[in-house]
Every structure is written in C-alpha cells, then in structure tokens.
Amino acid sequence: MSFALVFSGQGMQHPAMLPWLAPDDALVRLTCAQLEVADWRTSLEDSGWAACNRHAQCLLTGLGLAAWQQLATDLPSPAAIAGYSVGELAAFSAAGVFDAATALALARDRAEAMDRCATHTPGGLLAVSGLAMSLLEPLCHATGVAVAIRNGVDSAVIGGPHAALARAESQALQHHAHCTRLKVHVASHTPWMQTAADGFAQTLAPLPLQRPRSPLFSNAADRILDAAQAKAALAAQIAQTVRWDECMDNLAARGVRCVLEVGPGQALARIWNQRYPDIPARACDDFRSAAAVVAWVRSHA
C-alpha cells in the first residue's frame, strides 16, 4: 500500500470542516485550550476570528494532526508526507520530527512572529490563475509584489503590501487572469516576512528535533533527512516562495498510488488531480466518517 499524505494550509477553514472529527479527542481539546475557546466550530462561525492568523495557524495544525491520528491507527505509514504553507508543521509532526504539542506551540510562535512582522508592512495574498509564470513573474517585478506560492504552470499565489497587491491584481485582470483575495492578512512566503523567518529560526534553534521516520518533503527545500534540515526549511519557507509544484513532483516520484489531503476544503486534492489525473487525490472534507476515509485510501493505495 502506497499513498502520500498532505496537510492543507490556511484560508479554507470553515465551521463544518472535518465533520467526522471526534470532538472529545485529547488533541482537539488541547487545541481549543491553546486558543482559549470552548468549541472551535462555533468560533469559526465568526469570520473575523477565523481569519486571524494566530487562530488559523494553531487551529489547522492541531486539527490536522488530530484527524491524522484518528486515521493512522487503521492505515500504514505514508510513502511520502508534505504540508502546504503552515501545513508543514502538521506534516513534520506526522513524520516524527516533533510531537503534536510542540507543533501547536510552534504554530503559535510562527503566527505571532509573522503578525509582528506584518505590523511594519501590512500585506496580503492574491491567488492568480490563467496566467503563465513567464507573464506573472515580470508583472510581480513591475508592481512590487512577489510570487508566494507556485501551484502549477498557470496557477500561483502572489503577495506583498496592499497597495502593490492592488496594482498587481489590476494588471493581472487586464491579462484576463482569474484573481481571488485570500483570507490572510500577512504577505506570507515573501521577502516582507524575512524578519519573521529569522525570529522563527531562533525559536527552532534550541529544540531537540528528530530525523523524519517517513519520507518528508519541504516547501523550501526538497527531501528532509535530518533535524538540521528540518529547522532550516521550516524557517526559510516563511519568507521564500512555496514550491508546491516541485513538492508534488517529489511525492509523485515516490510511486504513490493515491493522495490524501488532511485539512479544510479540497484545494490540494484539486491541484493534484489537475497535475496528476492518473493518481487520484481526495480530501478528508469529502467524507462523513473516518471509516470512509480509510476505506477510500485502502481501495486505491
């Protein structure tokens, strides 16, 4: 049995996500305690609370790991693991680099470092599709933004200060691209986050991380083989382009038979199916029970 495990990033969180997730799970309770909320689903009904960087990063890390722990008892180890943006914290934990409690603490520290950085240069992210990278990259240079995430040949996320992002959106629309503002209030994965990346590197430096137990791939590097590489990659991706296109290629090169996305929405599964139509991908949000998720993976892997 061979499957890849990928963890979603923020922006798609919603109150009905992961409908089968056990509410009395210890990690779910720990996540709620860190966020100081009684019920995360009720909290997500408040759009302002849901869009808060600290809330989203902690919630997705904790719930992603809780969901995977509930599935892992009935599935073998993945052939490859990766996470999208903040999803890397859950991915690295699932691969054995650090435990779930450490992942939650790191999610809080990561978000706070990024929020502090954003107070000096407020910004955001814009998803752009239907525009080739050969056109998007010079557009970014001309308007003063940067490519934050590469998803495919004509699909990316750009980021930067608000005024520059508005200029970039206007020019992209003139090229008949499709543009969507993301529910993120920081210019993640761009040079404007370098101070946050440096601060997070200092947070990671003293931690006794472990080498991955499963093949683990990074947004900022390639395969992660030891603790030193893990620390460098987790810090670097805050201010560098997320190379999700290359990350998917690395997963496919492992010969996986299917891909399971853990987290809210179906964005990663959709991107994967467009790139690799012969290797099916599904998201945990598609299913009404953990047993159904396990059955799908077993039937395809």
Rank of each mutant, 00 (worst) to 15 (best):
E36G: 13
V37E: 15
I238W: 02
Q57S: 05
K183F: 11
P122M: 15
S214V: 09
E112G: 10
A50I: 10
G130Q: 07
T195A: 15
W20R: 00
L216A: 10
Q174K: 10
S218N: 07
D285S: 15
L89N: 03
D286F: 03
G199V: 07
R298P: 01
V293I: 06
T190A: 11
A168Y: 05
D245K: 12
R275Q: 06
G9Y: 04
S170T: 09
L65Q: 00
H185D: 15
H120L: 13
P138G: 12
C58D: 05
R116S: 15
G87F: 03
H185C: 14
E88R: 06
F92E: 01
A187N: 08
L216F: 02
A26L: 01
G159P: 12
V294F: 09
A100C: 01
A111K: 06
E88L: 05
E246S: 10
T241D: 13
W272D: 03
G83H: 07
Q194S: 12
D285G: 13
A220S: 15
S8K: 01
S299Y: 00
R29I: 10
W192V: 05
P264D: 08
A205I: 01
L182A: 13
L89R: 05
T195V: 14
G124A: 15
S134G: 05
A236G: 10
A113M: 09
T190D: 13
A168G: 10
P212G: 01
C117V: 09
L173Q: 13
A95W: 04
M114N: 04
I271G: 00
R288G: 14
F200D: 09
G96R: 05
V157D: 13
P76T: 00
A205M: 09
L106E: 03
R254S: 08
S155D: 12
V97Q: 11
V293D: 06
G160Q: 11
D39F: 06
P76K: 02
G144S: 06
A132S: 13
A267F: 05
A80H: 05
Q69S: 08
E169L: 15
A94V: 03
G9S: 04
T180W: 14
L35A: 10
A233P: 12
L182C: 14
I149G: 00
D99C: 03
L216D: 07
C52W: 02
A94Y: 04
A201N: 13
